[in-house]
Nucleic acid binder design. Structure first.
Lengths: 213, 213
DNA sequence: TAGATTGTTAATCGATTAACAATC
DNA sequence: TAGATTGTTAATCGATTAACAATC
């Protein structure tokens, strides 16, 4: 699978292709053209082909793309078969909702355990996942490969928690703290998930629409 | 406040400026240059000035920007003072976490009530917000202005729920269903919040990093 | 074979960066 | 006044779209 530097826009479109392909599979569709796939997602056929061509050649001239094969290719591109180990820090409302609700395993993630400072939570299980005391974080990570930490602590503890994870050698942080964590020496990849950024964007569009009418 | 067509990238940067300004305020900083503000967020000074210039002139030559004034301007741009009315559909784990956890009011949103089909939830309150039966959705909306619906139903009910909201004249949908809702006749603005898209992007970066080493 | 559709190269469009006169 | 920093225009860079030869 060739590739040089892939643009961020292209990378962010890959999970959307995956979702569209799953939808097509659910409908029993076996074959799709770049035009049709683009149409589902609101992209041009050109863009679809351009995106895929960054990673290799997955289609067939005159035919299009075989849905199950393309889905598999994209899932490879995204590294979904790697069985990444993850932990979750901060088992308050959001952390709890993620542990109980989000299907980590179908996205290729093994959620090993949660961590919290609250003694009432420590020792309990959420959706079969044990909650451990944050004090054990270092020793827990020490003898394992932890690819990802899902960070759900309150905003004011975010920076400190991120530093701790960085020094433990965690590869990636999925940041739900609503604080920007930008530890200067940070080596981990950070994916920020800011609820209010998304909400405020929506508010802007509501306002714009109102002033146009 | 002049403006023509603002690029999507610029709009999505506005909430981040807001967050950076709140951080500066918390530190007691009263004045900031485009360079400093950009530095916090990883943008160039040029980009910061270019972004703001889409909406007007908020700075002062030789001085920079007055932090509280700029914050207020951005909050105006985003329409945060409008007191938008919102409802939440689907009070399962994610819906519940949002109702209990997310500070709607500090983002200028009045969360009026939740809706669910589960008779055990109907009539209860979450964080002081009443849960009503979905059957009452139409009549509830009928005599009010509902600017936004936060959609937290299971993926397979997403399309149907979105259609219902559309026909009630809801302006905007904040979509947490992990399904793409793209009702062709849809007039509402839709902001998708897909957990797995974000997670898979992170997985990609982990994989890339691993293959580079 | 004729029709369809790919992968890729070239053209266009838009967004970011650089430069600089204006001015606080 | 001298220094700093804006707002804006011009230059560059990158991403999207269009076109088309290759070929299933």
């Amino acid at each position: 699978m060739k590739h040089g530097k892939i643009s961020n826009n292209t990378i962010r479109r890959m999970p959307r292709y995956l979702r569209a392909l799953d939808e097509l599979t659910a409908r029993g569709t076996n074959r799709v053209s770049s035009f049709e796939l683009g149409h589902i997602l609101g992209f041009t056929a050109s863009q679809v082909r351009q995106d895929f061509s960054c990673f290799g050649t997955f289609g067939q001239q005159g035919y299009g793309y075989h849905v199950p094969a393309l889905r598999e290719q994209i899932s490879q591109i995204l590294g979904m078969h790697k069985g990444r180990n993850a932990i979750l820090i901060g088992c308050g409302n959001i952390g709890k909702a993620l542990l109980c609700n989000f299907d980590f395993s179908s996205n290729g993630i093994n959620m090993l355990c949660g961590f919290d400072t609250n003694p009432e939570l420590v020792g309990t299980h959420l959706n079969g996942i044990e909650i451990r005391p944050v004090s054990e974080l270092g020793s827990f990570i020490a003898d394992k490969v932890i690819d990802m930490a899902v960070l759900c602590v309150p905003p004011d503890s975010a920076e400190k928690a991120a530093d701790a994870l960085n020094s433990c050698g965690v590869e990636a942080i999925w940041n739900f703290t609503n604080a920007d964590i930008s530890s200067p020496g940070s080596k981990a990849v950070i994916e920020n998930f800011h609820f209010s950024d998304s909400l405020l964007t929506l508010c802007y569009h509501i306002k714009e629409r109102a002033t146009r009418c």
